[in-house]
Amino acid sequence: MANIEGLNHTGRSVPDVRTGEQFYVDVLGAHHCNTISSATEDVRAGRGAPHPCNTVAGYLFVLFPHQDDIPLPESPRGEDGSRIGFSVSRQRFDDVVARARDLELPFEGPVQHPEHGPFGESLYFTDPGGNFMEVCWRRDEEVAYNPLVSKK
């Protein structure tokens, strides 16, 4: 067993939090949770700003505004930074690819991963802030891992 449970949430920056959030809702089916505007030490010191929180398949994304104009990346595979990957069942993967085409979402893939690894196939795209994203199916989808959260 590892000494860590899993991923908790991700903070990302987008040029405009309103259009950024709309992408997460319209394309990824995100749910708006709340907009955090607490007067934390960071906000008071000018190091933060109110930020909307949205969940995608139960995983929280916190969106922050860019502080400057930032050039968008050329490739959606995240070759110069981080990337967040979601999974779907192998059965659903082709539907997701078709859905991405229906949405006219620019993407790369599907790309096949080596058979000896945990990943099956992936497609890659970016959000409006140029943040890299991935959807894959996994070869270990039948493994009974710990739940993301336990029930109260």
Partner: peptide, 15 residues
């Protein structure tokens, strides 16, 4: 209810 484009969080890639 969580129904959408994807099923669950899978991984994080870091350079």
């Amino acid at each position: 209810q969580e129904e959408g484009f994807v099923d669950r969080i899978s991984h994080l890639v870091l350079g």
